[in-house]
Design a protein around this nucleic acid. Structure first.
Lengths: 226, 226
DNA sequence: ATCTGTGAAGCCGTTCACAGCG
DNA sequence: CGCTGTGAACGGCTTCACAGAT
């Protein structure tokens, strides 16, 4: 379930506050979901609650971590060390607790060799070699769009079966490989859509009503990528 | 629809290649969805296809852009200029075409005044003032988790009704305000979950089988934030 | 009495399959 | 004949509501 990480985060917050036990109602509120949904989700992991009382926070944290595979370490490589790759590499929490960054790779010779967040950027030419040597199982693709599919093909050929893609392209991969995508552009566009609905935003309807520039002329807003 | 931006991106790619017309089948493949779904999605915008032929790329680009509200400019403020905020600010495509970054704000005095991507970082104390002056309608929150809710309350009070949240917390907002969340941690955890399922990953089951550290003892993997 | 776990109902998005238009 | 647009069937997720455990 995609909601387990959210529950886990809420539980960690409770844990820090020293809370020992939560009801489904409270936890659901903290996670921003319906309490029935939360109970059903948790019941799929087994019966870890106590009727009349609630869930023991610490125990539940452990069970969800186990279910998510977070009790073992995952070796991550970040490919593409532009602004975003740097931000990812520089984030402290990324390197610790569960996800270990074992490589920063880039194709740009002027970036290769730079020290970033305590790691040296390596040449993407050594990609296959590094993946094998270090046992990388998750690749984070933070390259420009044009390079993403090629990089993806290579990491997959090298044995990686999980890819987190920040490039604004739809990656095609063989069966058995998981791709997840994070796309700022799409999030912004969805917000713009809703924002427009609220305001009944005049700007554009005016333009259309006056017959100003229908289909033709130029690109209307191209996608915004990271 | 959350898929429209994906279609739009695929259409732009086709446009660059000089393709004038696409069938639902082709476009669906490019966007990574089922063709029936694509046709249904597009039919909600109106009848923009031609039976026996397909869709005219340029016309469809315009219609989807309109639907998404991308024919008007959206004014964005980025709050929190850490690694991630910097990456967002530094991305060229962000500043252009549809989303205009009108402010970079931070609470850290040592960052305020710095020039980043051609903009000067401003003090978050002036948040309300800047939002009003510049007509900000979308706030991007890239602060640490602890500050996010406070910042969110302030931007909402200042009139912003769309928030893109990168902080690893569930923001609570009044009705009528849209929040979208981008959370690297959750994406990685979901990947780890699937990865574990594939391999039948021995590591952890071993630990459990040998009775090693059940519930108690320490935090198992805390959430990873940006 | 309280709160979990869950059958059952309801709802919504997806997919099928074809009618109808070009 | 090809391809869109769409009613209808399907399936999964969500929510309700309550039985049952403590």
């Amino acid at each position: 379930m995609a909601r387990l990480p959210v529950y886990l985060r809420a539980l960690h917050t409770l844990q820090e506050r020293g809370v020992a036990t939560v009801s489904s109602e409270e936890l659901a509120a903290a996670a921003g979901v319906n309490s029935a949904k939360l109970r059903k989700d948790l019941s799929h992991l087994g019966s870890y609650g106590t009727r009349g009382v609630g869930y023991e926070v610490e125990y539940l944290v452990y069970q969800i971590s186990r279910e998510l595979g977070l009790t073992q370490d995952w070796v991550v490589a970040i490919i593409g060390v532009g602004n975003l790759g740097r931000a990812l590499a520089g984030y402290g929490g990324f390197a610790s607790r569960g996800f270990r960054v074992a490589g920063l790779l880039d194709a740009d010779e002027s970036i290769v060799g730079q020290e970033i967040a305590g790691m040296t950027v390596e040449n993407i030419g050594r990609l296959e070699e590094l993946i094998a040597e270090r046992g990388v199982s998750i690749a984070v693709i933070a390259t420009p769009a044009a390079a993403a599919q090629g990089v993806c093909d290579r990491v997959v050929a090298a044995g990686v079966t999980s890819v987190l893609n920040f490039a604004p392209v739809v990656l095609s991969v063989p069966d058995g490989v998981d791709v997840r995508k994070v796309d700022l552009s799409i999030e912004l566009q969805i917000l713009a859509f809703h924002e427009q609905r609220k305001a009944g935003g005049p700007g554009d309807y005016d333009a259309l009503a006056t017959g100003e520039a229908p289909p033709g002329t130029a690109h209307y807003v191209e996608a915004v990528d990271l």
